Amino acid sequence: MTKHKIFTMAFAKVYPLYVQKAERKGRTQEDVDAVIAWLTGYDQTSLQQQLEQQVDFEAFFAQAPRLNPKCTLITGTVCGVRVEEVEDPLMQKIRYLDKLVDELAKGWPLEKILRN
């Protein structure tokens, strides 16, 4: 079975798109970094290293310090697909991140996005 194209795409290619989406709605790069840190455990330094090394999504999530245990509280749809029903674990993590950025762009308070 072949890997999905997004798995081998450099995270650094998609990251600016996440930031642009958030900024169009009045959010900041820091907000995007905060949701990434919450989901993956990367701090600012290690996130920057991942971006500079051009790691793909598969490596980005495989090398993540820790996946937040509250990520299972992320529900809803991204591109018409319910994130809680995605079967492939890596694709589900990618969809979790997509959903968090969507919530930022919708203007949700950071506390609610981070499931506090």
Rank of each mutant, 00 (worst) to 15 (best):
M1C: 05
M1H: 06
M1Q: 08
H4Y: 10
K5T: 13
I6Y: 05
I6M: 13
I6A: 04
F7E: 15
F7L: 15
F7A: 15
T8I: 05
M9G: 05
A10E: 14
A10N: 07
F11Q: 07
F11W: 09
V14L: 14
V14Y: 13
V14A: 13
Y15W: 14
L17H: 12
L17A: 14
Y18L: 09
Y18K: 04
V19Q: 01
V19D: 03
V19S: 02
Q20P: 07
K21I: 07
K21P: 03
A22E: 14
E23K: 14
E23Y: 02
R24Y: 08
K25E: 13
K25I: 05
R27D: 02
R27F: 03
Q29C: 07
E30C: 02
D31P: 02
D31Q: 09
V32F: 08
D33P: 03
A34H: 11
A34D: 14
V35H: 02
I36R: 00
A37S: 15
A37I: 00
L39E: 05
L39R: 00
T40F: 00
T40C: 01
T40Q: 01
T40M: 01
G41F: 14
G41K: 13
G41Q: 13
G41N: 14
Y42S: 07
D43A: 03
Q44K: 11
Q44N: 09
Q44S: 13
S46Q: 08
L47A: 00
L47T: 01
L47H: 02
Q48L: 13
Q49D: 08
L51M: 10
L51V: 08
Q53D: 15
Q53E: 15
Q53N: 15
F57L: 14
F57S: 05
F57T: 03
F57M: 15
E58I: 04
F60D: 06
F61D: 00
F61M: 01
Q63N: 12
Q63D: 12
Q63R: 09
P65F: 06
R66C: 02
L67R: 07
L67S: 06
N68W: 09
P69W: 07
K70V: 06
C71S: 10
T72G: 10
L73Q: 11
I74M: 05
T75L: 12
G76R: 03
T77F: 06
T77H: 08
V78P: 00
C79P: 04
V81W: 06
V81C: 11
R82M: 06
R82H: 07
R82V: 07
V83P: 10
V83S: 10
V83F: 08
E85W: 06
E85G: 03
E85A: 14
E85S: 13
E87S: 13
D88W: 00
L90S: 05
L90F: 04
M91P: 04
Q92S: 00
Q92A: 04
Q92Y: 01
Q92G: 01
Q92I: 00
K93F: 01
I94N: 02
R95V: 09
R95H: 06
Y96L: 12
Y96N: 09
Y96H: 11
L97M: 15
D98G: 11
K99E: 00
V101R: 02
D102L: 15
D102P: 02
L104V: 02
K106Q: 14
W108M: 10
P109I: 03
L110M: 15
L110G: 02
L110W: 01
E111R: 05
K112G: 04
I113F: 05
L114V: 00
